[in-house]
Simulated assay, not measured.
Amino acid sequence: MGWNVTVDHDKCTGDGECVDVCPVEVYELQDGKAAVVNEEECLGCESCVEVCESDAITIEEV
């Protein structure tokens, strides 16, 4: 069991809230947008989804 994490770069404002709130460093900012760099570490807690004001993050169980 794992998690599929996606960021809609058209919606992402690059405020970095997801980077700051993620307990396992799934994201980092690249070119002013959030990028998924450690998807395999995702716990599925959805903290990032909750803080993303632009609704740019989707997490699905796989």
Rank of each mutant, 00 (worst) to 15 (best):
V37K: 02
C42W: 13
E53K: 06
D31R: 11
C18W: 00
L43G: 04
C22L: 04
G2N: 11
C22G: 09
G16D: 06
K33C: 04
I59V: 15
T6V: 11
V21I: 15
D8E: 05
T58P: 03
E53Y: 00
A34H: 09
E25F: 09
L29Q: 02
D10T: 14
E60A: 02
G2Y: 13
E41I: 01
A34F: 11
D31T: 00
E40Y: 03
V5W: 04
W3H: 00
L43V: 14
D15I: 02
E41N: 15
Y27W: 08
V21T: 09
D55M: 09
I57N: 05
C12V: 04
P23L: 08
E60L: 10
M1K: 05
S47N: 07
C12Q: 09
D20T: 06
V49W: 01
C12H: 00
A35S: 09
V19W: 03
H9P: 07
C52I: 01
E25S: 00
E53W: 12
V5A: 13
I59Q: 05
V49T: 13
D55V: 03
V49P: 01
V36C: 11
A34G: 01
L43W: 09
E25P: 13
D20W: 05
V24S: 13
S47C: 10
E53A: 01
V62M: 00
